[in-house]
Write a protein that binds this DNA or RNA. Sequence first.
RNA 1: GGAGAUAUAGCUCAGCUGGGAGAGCAUCUGCUUGACGUGUAGAGGGUCGUAGGUUCGAGUCCUAUUGUCUCCACCA
Length: 887
Amino acid sequence: MKELEKNYNPSQIEEKLYQKWLDHKYFHADAARGKKEGRKPFTVMMPPPNVTGQLHMGHAVDNTMQDILIRYKRMQGYEALWQPGTDHAAISTEVKVIDKLKSEGIDKQDLGRDGFLERCWDWKREYENRIVKQLYKLGSSADWDRMRFTMDEGCSDAVLEVFVKLYEKGYIYKGSRIINWCPVCRTSISDAEVVHEEQNGFFWHINYPVVGEEGCFVEIATTRPETMLGDTAVAVNPEDPRYQKLIGKTLELPLTGRQIPVIADEYVDKEFGTGCVKITPAHDPNDFEVGRRHGLEEICIMHDDARIDCPGSKYDGMERYEARKAIVEDLEKMGLLVKVVPHAHNVGIHDRCKTTVEPMIKPQWFVKMEEMAQPAIQALQSGELKFVPESFGKTYLHWLEGIRDWCISRQLWWGHRIPAYYCQDCGEILVAKNMPDTCTKCGGSHFRRDEDTLDTWFSSALWPFSTLGWPENTKELEYFYPTDVLVTGYDIIFFWVVRMVFSGLEQTGKTPFHTVLIHGLVRDSQGRKMSKSLGNGIDPLEVIDKYGADALRMTLMTGNAPGNDMRFYWERVENSRNFANKIWNASRFIMMNMGNGPVEEAPLNRLTMADKWILSKVNSLAKDMTENMDKYELGIGLQKVYDFVWEEFCDWYIEMVKARLWDEKNETRKAALWTLKTVLIQALKLLHPYMPFITEEIFCNLQDEEESIMVSSWPVFKQEWSFAREEREVETIKEAVRAIRNVRTAMNVPPSRKAKVYVVSEDQKMLDIFAHSKVFFAMLGFASQVCLQQDKAGIDDDAVSAVISGATLYMPFAELVDIAKERDRLVKEKERLEKELARASGMLSNERFVAKAPESKINEEKEKQEKYRQMMAQVEVRLAQLERKQS
RNA sequence: GGAGAUAUAGCUCAGCUGGGAGAGCAUCUGCUUGACGUGUAGAGGGUCGUAGGUUCGAGUCCUAUUGUCUCCACCA
């Protein structure tokens, strides 16, 4: 048997073991094999990290949870597929490549579309590997042989297929609508990519003259005066008495001289501002709606880079904020600027580049959402789709119920190019997977393909089935789809989960997964989000280097409930590291005692009470763990193995068993060794999904029969390992040991001072329990001898006592004990018992309790009451003795 | 404005279907016993945000209220 190092050193073994797993292809799932061997599939889709990304704590939590589920199911005998891949991350990658080009003095336009895309692919090849290697370090048991990329051939084909199908169904349309425009990235962005930030700005109050009524004005207030160049109306609330007579009149728009009407629309809030709103349909989403309702002209006054587009005017070509300044100055000169009021308001910012977005009307492609949202809503209501924790289902519903059409076109080059072809002869739009030969309308053969690409989420929405070969009906798709659990943070429910669900339902008729397991964010120790700008991020790789992947994984899973945020503390990592070291040393101890020979199988009837107790404990732990795993309560599961290993197994069982191990002639030595090894292996298996590396290392050192713990079988509850009586008996022993330790500490007795321990009970069965346990007292270092008797014969009156349920323990070290102190202690104990008795009798004398509570609960209370009565009697006797002694 | 989450020991958090308040860290006190000081034995510390209600019984369920956080929508 190999000798282990004194301290666990993760860095030495993690890489070696991961390579071993890869070499043995343990991560690989196979549909044909699974089918042939009659296994059930279990599938998890890895949320594809951005190719340009670096591993952060979010990935670490997300992937740890998935790995735990996959390893658990794999051990349970499922054909467990964890499908990995990466995302092309359109904007993010394009921006980075552009930056890199800039540093080389190259402009995107100079390279041309193909040249630029080549640079993007170079970037992808260079960085994809980085994030994948980082996921290796976590211990992720994903099926890397099936690695996919959202822009690889298969996924791209799925994208085209879906686009064409949705177009033909009328769910995809092209239209001019107001969208969020990023003047720096020069592309439209979705609502979800816009973040709102409060900024201190101003409210400019401006007078618009009423046509034909000299000296008569309408005062409007705006935060963006430059947009007035595009005003096509002023609106008031139809119910507003102040402005009734204005409705229908015509105003002259200052600076342009254009004539615009005053209209009435519910949208206007009477209480806000002046109650008169300038309407700029081309540059404000609300105004756009108003404009469409009233058939107003939509005048676009800005170029794509946010310079003013107003030919013939002095503002033409000005940058938007420059124009704002000029316009305000001019209005002031004209005497039309009424006042300027400081005003804090929210400004939309592009989350990637932080530029203030400009609402613009642009021809864009949209997905009609109304029909597709319905089945997705129903999936949740029918229970076909479930969120853990459930409350996130409300977030999901809320979003779907208020869903708007999805703008899917992006003015980027890196991404899936929209498969729409414009006939150069007649202008007809043809949508097809490949460029058509002839125009269906005019028979022409010259086409221009749409320049735009699709929103990144369009392809990720198809991830659960595109990766399995859809639209082909592959054996993988048939076997592994629909998948089982999707693990993700609550921050991308809208972006991704919703879109996967409606896409899956629309394309395959099935929800792509039955459960969405939501986790929270990892925050810093002060509760702040980890972010680049704050510089407060903790690099998971640094944690792994210092403490090992297992410690990181354990830290992220401890004391954490689904959906809740957690804070990162280095102290917690240390605790995890300490736990790893604890198991390491327990294993080391066991192996030292095993010697070189094999551990013989011990028949159950040769086991001692302690052996049966720990076996029974690990047995019910297996059941408990399985239940918690199935409920996705990963934090609770971990807590349970932790407590078992550290407290029950190390602090109690190993200590109980030492004396037997050291005595080569002891006839129960072999039983002890067998139990130690067996229980340890069970515990290692239960822990393996959480801490794959250390459990594998110990497992392989401990036994020769199996080559890896990750393909060993998950422990199941066995009736023959269930020993209720022994569990109770050992609990009694533990109670006794604790009682004695407490008394001795309370009495300030040094551990080196040994004393006799008398166990007194009228109940012979009770004494029998202790008959087997003399060895514990000796081993625990404070009993020179243990005497069992039914009465107090031979025990000095001033012996110190400890009362436990069913027995009283005495230690005759009279000379060490201060009688007054002992009396105080007993008085305290008496008070405690009185409280307990009051509680029990309070319940039992309550007629309604007795009438309504379940029988088992009543009996439980009666037993407790009886137990406390007995203890109380003992305490009273002891007190009386002391009184006599003192007087 | 809409929705959701959360409030438990000094700190960070568990506490699953209601039935005697827990962990880690921190603090204090012991322990050079042959796996581990990354250890071990013990102690102190909480009227479970507040007020009602349901119940024989509420940290747990309901209502209201307060604080904190998050998401969505955004007022020109």
